Each structure stands twice: as structure tokens, then as C-alpha cells.
Measured scan of single mutants.
Amino acid sequence: VYKEIAITNGCINRMSKEELRAKLSEFKLETRGVKDVLKKRLKNYYKKQK
């Protein structure tokens, strides 16, 4: 499980701001904020899904 999260986090870290926004809107999450906030939001979402 932790390895999956680590791989997902690595992918998220390599995403551009536009990619992050697209992914967040896909999951109907808030898309406003600076890049670091968007990354954190997406990581938290994936963590809750596990």
C-alpha cells in the first residue's frame, strides 16, 4: 500500500499545474490555489481512496 502511495506521489510531483487542475476537476475537487496546494489536495484524495 505504501509503495502505491509513493508511486502516485511521484507522478503527482511531476505534473504541471494544468495537469493537476485537470485531474482535480475529474474528481470534482477544488481547482483553485497554488501548485503546492493542488498537489497536496490530490495526494490527500488518493490517500483517502486507499
Rank of each mutant, 00 (worst) to 15 (best):
V1S: 13
V1C: 12
V1N: 15
V1Q: 06
Y2R: 12
Y2E: 15
Y2G: 15
Y2N: 15
Y2C: 14
K3S: 13
K3F: 07
K3H: 13
K3C: 11
K3Q: 13
K3V: 07
K3T: 12
K3P: 12
E4M: 11
E4D: 14
E4P: 11
E4Q: 12
E4S: 12
E4R: 07
E4H: 10
I5P: 14
I5K: 13
I5G: 14
I5V: 13
I5W: 09
I5L: 13
I5T: 15
I5Q: 15
I5M: 15
I5R: 12
I5D: 14
A6R: 11
A6M: 12
A6P: 14
A6Y: 14
A6G: 12
A6H: 14
A6N: 14
A6K: 14
I7A: 12
I7G: 11
I7W: 08
I7V: 12
T8C: 08
T8I: 08
T8V: 07
T8M: 10
T8Q: 09
T8G: 09
N9E: 08
N9Q: 10
N9R: 15
N9P: 14
N9S: 12
N9A: 13
N9K: 15
N9H: 12
G10A: 11
G10Y: 08
G10P: 08
G10L: 06
G10R: 08
C11G: 13
C11A: 15
C11P: 08
C11D: 15
C11F: 11
C11R: 12
I12K: 03
I12C: 03
I12Q: 01
I12V: 10
I12F: 03
I12N: 04
N13R: 06
N13E: 06
R14G: 10
R14Y: 02
R14S: 11
R14H: 10
R14F: 01
R14C: 07
M15H: 02
M15K: 07
M15Y: 04
M15T: 06
M15V: 07
M15F: 05
M15D: 00
S16Q: 05
S16G: 06
S16R: 12
S16E: 03
S16Y: 05
K17Q: 04
K17C: 11
K17N: 06
K17V: 10
K17F: 04
K17G: 04
K17A: 09
E18K: 15
E18A: 15
E18I: 14
E18S: 15
E18F: 14
E18T: 15
E18L: 14
E19W: 03
E19N: 07
E19Y: 04
E19S: 08
E19R: 06
L20M: 08
L20I: 10
L20K: 01
L20F: 05
R21P: 03
R21F: 03
R21D: 02
R21E: 02
R21N: 02
A22S: 13
A22E: 13
A22Q: 13
A22W: 09
A22H: 13
A22I: 13
A22R: 13
A22D: 11
K23E: 05
K23R: 12
K23N: 07
K23A: 12
K23P: 01
K23D: 00
K23W: 08
K23S: 07
L24Q: 01
L24Y: 01
S25W: 09
S25P: 07
S25E: 11
S25M: 12
S25F: 11
S25T: 11
E26Y: 10
E26F: 10
E26R: 05
E26N: 08
E26K: 08
E26V: 06
E26D: 11
E26S: 09
F27R: 09
F27T: 05
F27P: 01
F27G: 03
F27W: 05
K28I: 02
K28D: 10
K28Q: 11
L29P: 00
L29Q: 09
L29K: 04
L29W: 03
L29V: 05
L29N: 02
E30W: 05
E30P: 08
E30R: 03
E30Q: 06
E30N: 10
E30D: 15
E30L: 04
T31R: 07
T31N: 11
T31L: 04
T31F: 15
T31E: 07
T31P: 11
T31H: 15
R32G: 06
R32F: 05
R32M: 04
R32I: 04
R32T: 07
R32A: 06
R32K: 09
G33Y: 01
G33V: 03
G33S: 02
G33R: 03
G33M: 00
G33I: 00
G33P: 01
G33F: 00
G33C: 04
V34S: 11
V34T: 15
V34L: 09
V34K: 15
V34N: 15
K35V: 08
K35H: 03
K35F: 02
K35W: 02
K35Y: 02
K35N: 03
K35P: 02
D36Y: 10
D36G: 08
D36S: 15
D36N: 14
D36A: 14
V37H: 03
V37C: 09
V37F: 05
V37A: 13
V37T: 14
V37S: 11
L38S: 05
L38R: 01
L38H: 00
L38E: 01
L38T: 00
K39V: 09
K39F: 01
K39I: 06
K39T: 05
K40Q: 07
K40A: 06
K40I: 02
K40V: 04
K40T: 06
K40D: 03
K40F: 00
K40E: 06
K40P: 01
R41G: 01
R41N: 01
R41Y: 01
R41I: 02
R41W: 00
R41E: 00
R41T: 00
R41M: 02
R41H: 00
L42H: 01
L42T: 00
L42R: 01
L42K: 00
L42C: 01
L42P: 00
L42A: 01
L42E: 01
K43L: 04
K43Q: 05
K43V: 04
K43M: 05
K43C: 02
K43D: 03
K43H: 03
K43A: 04
N44S: 12
N44Q: 12
N44M: 10
N44T: 12
Y45H: 13
Y45F: 12
Y45K: 01
Y45T: 00
Y45N: 04
Y45S: 08
Y45C: 06
Y46Q: 10
Y46D: 01
Y46M: 15
Y46H: 09
Y46E: 03
Y46S: 08
Y46N: 08
Y46I: 15
K47L: 06
K47C: 05
K47Q: 07
K47H: 06
K47A: 08
K47S: 07
K47T: 06
K47Y: 05
K47R: 11
K48V: 06
K48S: 10
K48A: 09
K48D: 07
Q49W: 09
Q49T: 12
Q49S: 09
Q49P: 03
Q49A: 10
Q49V: 09
Q49C: 10
K50W: 13
K50D: 07
K50T: 09
K50Y: 10
K50Q: 11
K50L: 13
K50E: 11
K50H: 10
K50M: 09
